Computed example of a mutant assay.
Amino acid sequence: MAQRIDIKGQRQDAITAACSVLAAKRPVAMPTETVYGLAADATDPAAITNIYTTKGRPRFNPLICHMADITMAERYAVFDPLSRKLASAFWPGPLTLVLPLKEDSGIHPLATAGLDTVGLRVPKGFAGELIRAYGRPLAAPSANTSGKISPTTADHVEADLGDKIELILDGGMASVGVESTIIKVEGETIRLLRPGGLAVDEIERLTGISVTRNAGASATIEAPGMLASHYAPESDIRLDAREIGTQEALIDFGQSEIKNRDSALVVLNLSPSGNLAEAAANLFSMMKQADASKARGIAVAPIPDHGLGEAINDRLRRAAAPR
């Protein structure tokens, strides 16, 4: 079973232990503000292979490479002026930029699924400290079995991967609760590859540019989180529910009007006050709770599609997709 270290009380011990495991080419579960990541050296093929093997992740699905700061990121990728402006405004934070790789950057092609671009992010808090101490970028998809619900606590990681990894760093509950927003700058346009913890309207407010969305499912996987089926619980999910069926769990939002609410096997509310940031932070945890109830299915109340609601609905649609 994995060793577990509380970073709040043993910060330096956690960094020392993590650097030792990373140097041995093995992955470490680390907390970030979005979700917990399964981190390994992005420059080492054996380390990256261990991520894919541990998660059971398809190797055509690229990994985000996490950096300590913009200075480190600029050693590995080519920044255009608009991408640099976005990085300066939103890093550290829940934004991933897809950028052209520098020649001989050192990031291994296994991490990028052979693409000539790479998704880069600078995480807040402890993860950034760990990367700085280790001295190399860390590829870090979510620390869960591929396709399943992403973990927002160390308990989630331990329940899923505890017998497959050596070290879990416990930083408490992730504050954002959904993965990063992924964008790609193309000339004077900005394309959204995955909605996430940074609302698109904040990007538009900073740049004055309307962000474009992919039209339907993309045939080309350019970034993580673009697979049609992802973030899936064991139970089937029904979206925009207006009533509860027999033996269903309810994931509610705000003060919605749901018929037969009292017949729900369990009722969980992402945010009784209708706060989308609170809902995002609770999403994966409540999906896991609803799934653990052994309900026949999970009904999800309607959630507004603006701001962080775009990311919440994206995760729910992929969770509900045919598997």
Rank of each mutant, 00 (worst) to 15 (best):
K85F: 11
A159E: 15
Q10M: 08
R57H: 02
N144V: 14
I5F: 08
H156T: 01
A24H: 15
L227Y: 04
T181K: 04
A320P: 02
L99C: 05
I258M: 07
R238C: 02
A290H: 09
L99M: 09
S293F: 02
K184N: 04
A17M: 10
P81Y: 01
P195D: 04
N282H: 14
A223R: 01
L276C: 02
D305K: 12
A295V: 03
F253D: 12
S293Q: 10
E188K: 14
G125W: 05
K288N: 09
E248Y: 11
R132S: 15
Y134L: 14
E310S: 12
D201L: 04
R132H: 15
E222S: 14
A140L: 13
S293M: 07
M67C: 05
V78P: 00
T152V: 15
N260C: 07
G147F: 13
A223D: 04
P27M: 11
Y134D: 13
Y231T: 01
A140T: 06
F60W: 00
S285V: 00
A215E: 15
A133H: 06
A42F: 09
M286L: 15
I183F: 06
D80Q: 08
R213T: 14
P109D: 11
M72Y: 00
L193C: 11
A264T: 11
H66F: 01
Q10S: 14
A29Q: 04
G147K: 08
V35P: 02
V21A: 08
L138M: 12
I64K: 01
I48R: 10
A241I: 03
P58H: 01
S273N: 07
P31F: 05
A290Q: 09
A199G: 10
L167Q: 05
L270H: 03
S273H: 07
A113W: 07
I312K: 10
A215L: 14
E234M: 04
A42R: 08
S229P: 00
I298P: 03
P123Y: 11
N313T: 00
A47L: 10
V157N: 06
N61F: 01
I64N: 00
I70G: 00
E186C: 07
L265M: 14
V185T: 06
P62G: 04
S105E: 04
M287A: 03
L82G: 02
M173C: 09
A111W: 13
A199E: 14
V267I: 15
R136F: 12
S293W: 02
F79K: 08
E158Y: 11
G128H: 10
L192A: 10
D240E: 13
D201R: 13
R213E: 14
K288D: 11
E179L: 08
A14C: 07
L265T: 14
A111H: 08
T145P: 03
V176Q: 03
G307M: 13
D13V: 06
A319D: 02
V185L: 05
P92D: 05
T207G: 06
R242C: 07
I251P: 08
T207W: 13
T54G: 02
D80Y: 10
V267H: 10
P233A: 01
D116Y: 06
A279E: 05
M287I: 09
A113D: 10
E234K: 14
K8P: 00
D6P: 00
I131V: 12
Q12D: 10
L86P: 03
T43M: 13
L193A: 13
L97N: 07
L120T: 10
A111V: 02
V21P: 12
G245D: 09
Q12M: 09
S105F: 05
E278N: 08
A280T: 03
D104Y: 11
